[in-house]
Nucleic acid binder design. Structure first.
Length: 497
RNA sequence: GGGCCCGUAGCUCAGUCGGUAGAGCAGGCGGCUCUUAACCGCAAGGUCAGGGGUUCGAAUCCCCUCGGGCCCGCCA
């Protein structure tokens, strides 16, 4: 499959390149100046009636040759670039008997070519370029996937993403959309006077979440280092330092399994906003998603789920109370009044297998995941969580045992998480230690320097964090995280492959 | 970690009571000057993921390995 070197198709393509070369032409030339996007050709064809060419105008286009339809002494070649596709019309009349024959004998689907010619609308009404010359810009030695179905094998689509992209407009558009969404996200936050920062990815102790870190080694420090699992503690240090409004979009790494909504390597957005609380953050996040939904719809007009995003993400989003919603959906009364043993048994009934000594909130989370989460299709803010599973959030100003926290859900999964940030250093230290005493120390590391930072005074603030991949998935209606990560983690091919 | 499923030509896919491995696309040769997955004809293209076993005979049945998919569990 990959070992294309043995295929006669490769041999034939090499021979074509060699033939081209022996005719004094370069199959891999250095440039092709003056090309315009194919969209410009379509625009140039706007005023032309069927069968008419604009002889006064000469255009150059470049891109990948997708399909050749030969008719003896004329041929149609479909050329594709980032802006779309355009049909080339090549005839003996313009190219000459010899030139025409030489050209077609050297071209294959998949080749990168450049064409020079005149805008033409065919008798059938197709915008085209009637070419005076076509040159190879890069001979493709490997054959592209089948022209109609493209690359279907999910494994190959991940391992050779370039083939997926070059053969699937849909895939190219989806990944382009991801970039446009992140660009717009930055524009939104920049417009609100947030500062984008970059913090360390390689750190002495990964903290800010409870995931298993990747471990590495520094030759310089001669010490074990870890890859960050969250941005939170670094960004809050910046609030201490006076940056007031900061955000980061960056890779985080969690040494855990992957599924449709988790990947070991993923991008996170986190933002921190001084002198604001989680209610302010709700409005900000709502506005952000509403604005991004417009971008998604525009970027992926052919994808129904993306087209419907602006409607789905139209503010105001639904708001529900964490405990209240869970009690309502599960039919379980007085959750906060239940003992840990009762909650553990309830969690068991929904198939959860968490350690017996987990905090009560952990069992409630399992119930929430089972009874509530799958039903949260429309964007919904879930408010006010048990304190024992949220050590970085400030206790609720009026509801004992809870913290000021919301999570945003849509399409049945979590999109983001926000708190009114805990800024009391002594309480923070106590909460950390409480967390540590309960369970798996190897899952949680005490960042003493962070507590030290809080001692210098962090303004009251709110923070939000959410995965970029899930954001893209939700806005574009993509169901697997691998479809929004260009190069997801894959196993090395076995040596034999 | 558990369960189920998948791996056949460069690509997309057929092919189970076990009996010489098929099609379409792409590629080759020939024909065709307005096609749209162009069309028509001819010829070619295979370590059936890899290894082992059962059998007179294995793509097909069994076991192992590799890779992948889906579901569940785990991941505050």
């Amino acid at each position: 499959m990959v070992d294309a070197d043995d295929s006669h198709l490769v041999t034939e393509r090499r021979q074509k390149a060699a033939r081209y070369r022996s005719a004094g032409k370069e199959p891999y030339p250095w440039d092709f100046p003056g090309r315009v996007p194919t969209s410009e050709v379509r625009a140039a064809c706007q005023g032309l009636s069927n069968g008419a060419a604009d002889e006064a105008r000469t255009l150059k286009v470049a891109g990948r040759l997708k399909i050749v339809r030969q008719h003896g002494k004329s041929a149609f070649l479909d050329l594709e670039d980032r802006s779309g596709a355009i049909q080339l019309f090549a005839r003996v009349d313009e190219l000459g008997e010899e030139g025409y024959a030489d050209l077609l004998s050297v071209l294959d689907p998949g080749d990168i070519i450049g064409a020079t010619g005149h805008p033409l609308v065919t008798r059938r009404g197709e915008p085209s370029v009637r070419v005076d010359s076509v040159v190879l810009l890069a001979k493709a030695i490997a054959p592209p996937p089948e022209k109609f179905h493209g690359l279907q094998d999910p494994e190959e689509r991940l391992r050779r993403r370039y083939v997926d992209l070059l053969s699937s407009r849909e895939s190219l558009a989806r990944f382009t959309a991801r970039t446009l969404l992140v660009r717009e996200l930055r524009a939104y936050l920049d417009g609100l006077d947030f500062l984008e920062v970059e913090t360390a990815t390689i750190v002495p102790v990964a903290s800010g979440a409870a995931a298993q870190p990747f471990v590495t080694h520094s030759n310089y420090l001669n010490a074990e280092l870890q890859l960050r699992i969250a941005l939170e503690l670094a960004l809050k240090r910046l609030l201490v330092g006076g940056m007031e409004r900061v955000y980061e979009v960056g890779r985080c790494f969690r040494n855990e399994d992957l599924d449709t909504t988790h990947s070991p390597e993923f991008s996170m957005l986190e933002l921190y906003w001084a002198y604001a609380d989680y209610s302010d953050m709700r409005r900000l996040v709502e506005g952000m998603f509403a604005r991004l939904a417009e971008v998604a719809a525009k970027a992926l007009p052919d994808l129904p789920a993306a087209r419907e995003a602006p409607e789905l993400f139209r503010p105001p989003f639904a708001t529900v109370d964490y405990v209240g919603e869970l009690e309502k959906r599960s039919g379980i009364a007085d959750l906060l009044g239940r003992s840990r043993e009762e909650l553990r048994e309830l969690a068991r009934t929904v198939g959860a297998t968490v350690p017996d000594d987990s905090p009560k909130g952990k069992f409630m989370d399992k119930l929430f995941e089972h009874y509530v989460e799958p039903h949260l299709i429309r964007p919904t803010f879930v408010l006010d969580f048990p304190a024992d599973t949220t050590p970085l959030a400030k206790r609720h100003r009026s509801r004992p045992g809870l913290v000021e926290r919301f999570e945003l859900f849509a399409r049945g999964y979590e999109l983001g998480n926000a708190y009114t940030e805990l800024n009391d250093p002594d309480e923070q230290e106590a909460r950390f230690k409480e967390q540590l005493s309960g369970r798996g120390e190897d899952h949680y590391a005490l960042d003493t320097d962070f507590i030290e930072a809080l001692r210098y005074g962090m303004p009251p603030a709110t923070g939000y964090g959410g995965g970029i991949e899930r954001l893209v998935m939700a806005l574009c209606g993509v169901s697997s995280i691998k479809d929004v990560i260009l190069f997801p983690p894959v196993r090395a091919r076995s040596p034999k492959a």
